[in-house]
Structures are given as structure tokens and as C-alpha cells.
Design a protein around this nucleic acid. Structure first.
Lengths: 227, 227
DNA sequence: TCAATAAATTTTGAATTCATAATTCAAGTC
DNA sequence: GACTTGAATTATGAATTCAAAATTTATTGA
């Protein structure tokens, strides 16, 4: 039993930041909604001090916007925000792929390919929930396999901001087919450790994702126009 | 007199974050040094509450590291940190260049080219201080001209973390010549709005910068090895 | 003298308190 | 009846206070 090591219980502000972040990502807090400190303190059973620290961090991360003397609001994600974020994510993923193709361990590649096979099954079964879960695992796996923690952190950070609940659901059949085909390419390039190709496919994959999102936004009007 | 508009005076924690950030970037705070809250409060003439909020933000930005019940330390920049950061900066700059070549206004391009000419003069005069200042202005100008505020913010953020005082001073004559030549290419590509070329040169420029830094670190031993 | 332990001090983490700005609501005016 | 004006309420911003953990200093015993 090797339970040694110092006991570190996360500090309150850190735990609160995690909770608030997921509340926002999972759309449990409406975009634009004002954040009432007193209410949240009551909800979490803490005082305002650590909560305010957490809010400051979330503001820096772009999840909330701060207005002096008027507190915090859940940040609203405009069409421009999405259009801005995706090229960056594409560039970062392309870099991650290039690095991962060279630096990943065989075990890491095997794990990603295993997720890929399972995702293909989910695709064939039209199990969108499992598909999304595995899709995320694959992208995070590549980020991790890049061996560049800073890069991984930045990808996660951007991803979290963009990946608000509603934007996940619903994909056109066409786009789903295309995405799956791209993922076959990704898996192939990775298994062959073909860095330039993996990089190129990932960039294309992300750019197509944005294109699909744009189309969906245009027809559903779901996505918030610019302010 | 058009003095209208809402009066917004920055909040204390925001101002403190700015101050602390520059103290770290300008090496007025030793890397690894523990940050004593009481001392800083006295220095700034504020209470601990807003200071602690600022520290939490800086921690998220990577300028300080937080240890539970043991407070904050100025983050130490290891060789690995630099090696990790530069490929990301290269990818982001390449993207910024590609976007800027297409989206920049003629005025923005003119401003950047003007800085370039002045930087060339600084280079010829061996005025390293002016050279660095203009160099930064050019890179920030390209980031801004990309028309992608999110990208600009991420570039600034990474740049600030890497650009600690000591790493600026001293460049080999060879590297300085090479950098200036690259900047000539950058200016040319930008003036021609040649997106692929600008993108390529900027990526190469950043990668060479890392290479030069690595060499310098190897000989001076100035840069902190990994922990 | 040195190591180990215990007391004292300092420092951080978090709750509370206080001041000020924003919001709400009611009264008054046109 | 709508619009302004001003008091009451509420929320935020920041200082202070309190508790707990860490660090330092002092003390004891070998």
C-alpha cells in the first residue's frame, strides 16, 4: 500500500473555479446571465472571498466578463468569437499532430487508435453521445501525446471556451460522414507516424468543423450574432 | 469637446495584476522567489484581498506558481518551458501573418513597414534597445492586423511569459544579422500581401529565435535547467 | 556541540465587516 | 399616464478579522 505523499486538498478558490467552469460549459448558467455572488456563495456554502478569486480567474479565461462595480456575467459566445477561435484551434491541433507523430509513445498511439476504432463503432451505431465522448478523447490524446504540456493546456483552454453545451448537439448527416472520414485519415497518419500528413488532416478537420458550425448557425439562428 | 462615455476606473485587482506582471517580466522579482503578501500589500498600499485576487490570475497565466498553504512563488522558466513555448508562438505567429496578409488595412501595413524601416536603422546603429522595442512593435502590429483579437491575446500572453528580462539582452552578431534578414523578408511579404510566404517566414523566424536562444543558454548556462 | 522537540511567530486561507456604487421602488411633476 | 427625481434596498469592492497551517526560534537532553 503506497499511499504516501503529502496530502494536498485543493484550495477553495480552485475547486470553485472548476465547478463554475463546468456550470458554464454545461450551460447550467445562461450566457449573458449576471452572476450573483451571494447566491453562489449560498449554493456552494462558502464565503465570497474565495468565490471572487475564482471569478477573477474565470474572467481571465474568458468564461465570464467583468464590469467594474457591476460584477460578473457569463460570457456570451458570438459568431465572431467562434470564427476567431477555430483557426487558432486548427493551428494548435496541427502543431500537436506534428509533434505527436514524432514524440508519441507506441502505447499512446495504440490508445488513440483504440479510441478511434470504438468511435467508428459509435458512428456506425449512430450513437452520437459515445461518438462525441470518444472524439474528444482522441483530440485530447493527440494533444497529450505531443509531449508539450503548454500546448496541451492551451488547447484545453480554448476547447473549453468553445465547447458550450448547445454547440455539441446536432450534426448534419453529411458533416458526420465527412468528419468520420477525416478521422480515418487521422488514424492512418498517426499509425504511420506521418507528421506532415497528420498535421495537415487535423488542420483541415478543424476548418471543416468550423464550416459546418457556420452552416448550422446560419440555418438555426441558434448562434448568437455579434453584439 | 467630446468627453462623453462612461467613466470606468480600473478595479484594484486588475491594476495589481498589471503591476505584478511587469515586475515579473522585468525581473524585478527573482524567479523562484516567494511572494510575501504582506510585503506587497505594504508596497502597493492595498489590503490583501485584491492582491490575492491578482495573484490567482497571474497563477492561471503561468507567471506564479501556487502551493496550498504555502502561497505563491515567481514561476521559474525552465529550458523545457522555452522549448515548449516557442513552437506554439511560431504556429500562432504564422497564423497571424497569414490572416494579416489578407485582412490588414493599408494603414496598418504602412505602420508596420514604417516600424520596420526604423528598426533597420536601429540595427545599422547597433542600437539594441531601440531594435528590441521596434521588433516587439512589429510583431504586435502583425498580431493586431490579423483582425483576430483572441489570437492577439494568446500571442501577447505567451510572449509575456517567455520574454523575461534576461532573455532579451545579448544576441550573437550572427543571430542578429540573420534576424534582420528575416525581417526584411517579413516586410517584403507583408507589403506584397503574400500570405503563404509571410506565414512561412514568421514560422521560420520564430524557430530560428529558439535555436539561437538554445545556443546561448548552452554556452552561458544562464537558462535554468529543468527541475 | 548538535539534534530533536516544543513554543512563539509569521503567513496563508477564508469569513466577516464596512464603504461605496448600482439598482429598485415609490413619490412627485408635467 | 409617462417621465423624472430621490430615498431605500441590494450588490459589489475592499479592508479587517479570525483560524489554521507553516516557519522560525528557543529550549532541552544527549
Amino acid at each position: 500500500m503506497n499511499d504516501a505523499g503529502p496530502i494536498v486538498r485543493a484550495s477553495l478558490h480552485d475547486e470553485l473555479a472548476v465547478r463554475l467552469r463546468s456550470m458554464i460549459v454545461e450551460d447550467r448558467l445562461e450566457p449573458g446571465e449576471r452572476i450573483n455572488e451571494r447566491d453562489l456563495c449560498e449554493l456552494f456554502g462558502v464565503s465570497r472571498t474565495p468565490l471572487r478569486e475564482a471569478i477573477k480567474v474565470l474572467a481571465r479565461e474568458g468564461y465570464v466578463t467583468l464590469t467594474p462595480n457591476r460584477g460578473a456575467c457569463v460570457a456570451v459566445l458570438t459568431e465572431t468569437d467562434l470564427s476567431d477561435a477555430f483557426p487558432i484551434m486548427a493551428a494548435l491541433e496541427a502543431l500537436a499532430g506534428e509533434l505527436a507523430a514524432r514524440a508519441a509513445s507506441d502505447a499512446q498511439i495504440a490508445a488513440i487508435l483504440s479510441d478511434h476504432v470504438r468511435m467508428r463503432t459509435a458512428f456506425e451505431n449512430r450513437d452520437i453521445s459515445a461518438y462525441f465522448r470518444l472524439n474528444e478523447a482522441i483530440h485530447l490524446g493527440i494533444a497529450s501525446a505531443s509531449g508539450n504540456p503548454t500546448l496541451e493546456l492551451m488547447q484545453r483552454s480554448l476547447d473549453g471556451r468553445v465547447r458550450r453545451g448547445r454547440f455539441q448537439a446536432n450534426v448534419s448527416a453529411h458533416r458526420w460522414n465527412q468528419a468520420m472520414a477525416e478521422h480515418e485519415e487521422i488514424a492512418e497518419a498517426l499509425s504511420e507516424r506521418d507528421a506532415p500528413r497528420l498535421s495537415e488532416v487535423l488542420r483541415r478537420h478543424l476548418n471543416n468543423k468550423l464550416e459546418a458550425l457556420r452552416e448550422r448557425m446560419a440555418e438555426t439562428g441558434d448562434a448568437l450574432p455579434d453584439p
